[in-house]
Design a protein around this nucleic acid. Structure first.
Lengths: 342, 342
DNA sequence: GACTTGAGTACGAATATAACC
DNA sequence: AGGTTATATTCGTACTCAAGT
């Protein structure tokens, strides 16, 4: 069973090959690559031509070994099926590329945190970004921070040394959503909450509560969604429908919960928003085509991801992280205001 | 500005440290790690203990340099916001981990194919998986295959040496969907197609057409969605509504198109499925909570991803790729059969 | 002395070869 | 011999230091 296997080409050229072709030492080639200004233009050009002709490419492993820098960053995130985390992961990846880093990702749930860390450390990542939606993951993240640079993305951690934390202001977004419903004249505004161990879920509950209180409105019991899925929203809405003093508006902790709730309302014969108004959170894809189009709060996930990466790079390079995050933004659609009503 | 920076700990232990602690040579340590059976149990145990005590961990860069194997695999995929590609990417990642590989991903669109390849080659990936939904990307993928092991995931490529191609049978899925509508008694069944340059889009058109023909039904003109988004489906549906002999059923090339179409139908006052039945494709998240719940075709993306990875690993190791793919599966919901109707 | 270039070695693990009990 | 362990070299790049113009 011998014979040519796919990809079994000739050995790729190394620095020495380039040096030989250009008639210089390998050291000069290295300098052309790393400190071009120190090389005489004519020599440099010869070397560059040799590089081009040979299709030479630096070997990252050797480079990493010599510089003790892998150019690798680890990203830990919860299940990628979730809109926020997956968007952030993409944003992080793009930003990393711009800074010359490649990202390796691990998913919480499939891989245990310890296992993921082990994987990352063996690969020699220079830093880790942890998308930490719960206290547990955040705690684990902060534990790592003693070992190597870590940035956590967590909605409600406050400052936790030695961890740098970036976060969107979920509380403000929730207040905006609730305020919107109050402004429309609603007085009984329910909240379908996400899993209580998520910072985001808690922050949205808090924002909803605070806004109701500041408007002098009653704060009903939170309706527990249990999870983040449409099925959870559907179940929660059914419980809501059985309440004595049924709310006239619902603020759901995310768009999936809202979608499930709307389905339950329709099945029960209620009209949205005439009989019950609905507001979601996240502005996931297609919310504009829900039945009816969903009013929701758009989150600057791209910003957040880029911000997290920049903070990590700053930390790796020993600088102080900076940068501003754009706030969440209410997107008004028909699920709260109707097609032509106010 | 000197002082301790986060993560600036002491240098991590190397093989020599382990060797010193265990009172052996670094060579013996290496053997304990790579060919334990060749080391006397008592020695092995001493070394293993030293490893544990020091928290020693192999340095991948050095290892990669010496073995000429990076344990890295590159994945090229279109925008991650798309359901199929992102699911597959996750499945690939999980499978890769099991085989001892880490995945690095690049997104078509943000990064040019050439640029992505360059990135991968510099990192020294051992192979590449290209999720190639269009002829263009597939062609680019096949071009790489001369350089290193490549597996393409493409819905309609057929066999293209030296490329190994894995694919789901989109045509069959489309036939199943169309058959379902025919069985329900529909005779005018329209198709809202995806972008024509996607293999998947073309295969679904073909399946729809073949099934109509084999049932002796007329094959109306394809309605071009243009893109894959709900907005595209919405626009396409509006054109459909203006048709003289309006269809009684619509098979959309994916769930987003179907969602947009349903929105347009509702706005036009049509009932689904009584006035017009709708079937989608993909079974994305939440389709069970659409208004009404959407009949669709579930694709085995996880299988496909794992399959692609296994094929790549086989190719890297010089074996012949094998394995079976599970077929697509029709998921019947109310958008085609109503809540209690037939 | 300013500017370029080259020789030699370190990085950390793997491995062929030799030495040991 | 046979089973273990040690020595020396290799992988490809970066960087210090010395030498050359």
């Amino acid at each position: 069973m011998s014979g040519d296997t796919q990809g079994a080409g000739k050995r790729s050229p190394v620095m020495a090959d380039v040096a030989a072709r250009a008639g210089v030492s390998h050291q000069t080639v290295s300098r052309v690559l790393n400190q071009p200004s120190l090389v005489r233009p004519s020599t440099r050009q010869r070397v560059e031509q040799a590089i081009a002709e040979l299709g030479y490419r630096r070997n990252m492993s050797a480079r990493a070994l010599a510089t003790r820098r892998s150019s690798l960053i680890g990203v830990v995130s919860p299940a990628v099926t979730l809109f926020g985390p997956s968007h952030m992961a993409t944003a992080i990846q793009d930003a990393a590329r711009q800074f010359g880093y490649a990202t390796i990702s691990a998913t919480t749930g499939r891989t245990s945190p310890t296992e993921a860390l082990d994987f990352f450390l063996t690969l020699g990542v220079e830093g880790i970004i942890v998308i930490a939606p719960t206290r547990q993951t955040a705690t684990e993240a902060s534990r790592l921070a003693g070992t190597l640079p870590v940035v956590a993305v967590a909605a409600g951690m406050g400052k936790v040394r030695p961890l740098h934390v970036v976060a969107i202001d979920n509380e403000q977004g929730a207040r905006d959503a609730t305020r919107h419903l109050i402004d429309l004249g609603h007085e009984r505004i329910a909240h379908i909450a996400g899993p209580r161990d998520w910072f985001d879920a808690r922050a949205r509950i808090e924002g909803w509560r605070l806004e109701l209180e500041s408007a002098g409105l009653p704060v009903p019991d939170v309706i527990e969604g249990g999870g983040w899925g449409a099925a959870d929203g559907h179940a929660a809405a059914q419980r809501l429908l059985e309440m004595a003093d049924r709310p006239t508006a619902v603020f759901a902790a995310n768009d999936d919960l809202a979608l499930g709730a709307m389905r339950a309302f329709h099945t029960a014969g209620l009209r949205i928003p005439q009989d019950i108004a609905v507001v979601g959170y996240d502005d996931v894809a297609n919310t504009a085509f829900y039945e009816p189009p969903l009013t929701t709060v758009r989150q600057p996930f791209d910003d957040l991801g880029r911000h997290a990466l920049e903070a990590l790079v700053a930390t790796i390079e020993g600088r102080q992280p900076e940068g501003e995050l754009s706030p969440p933004e209410l997107v008004v659609r028909e699920s709260s205001v109707g097609s032509a009503a106010g």
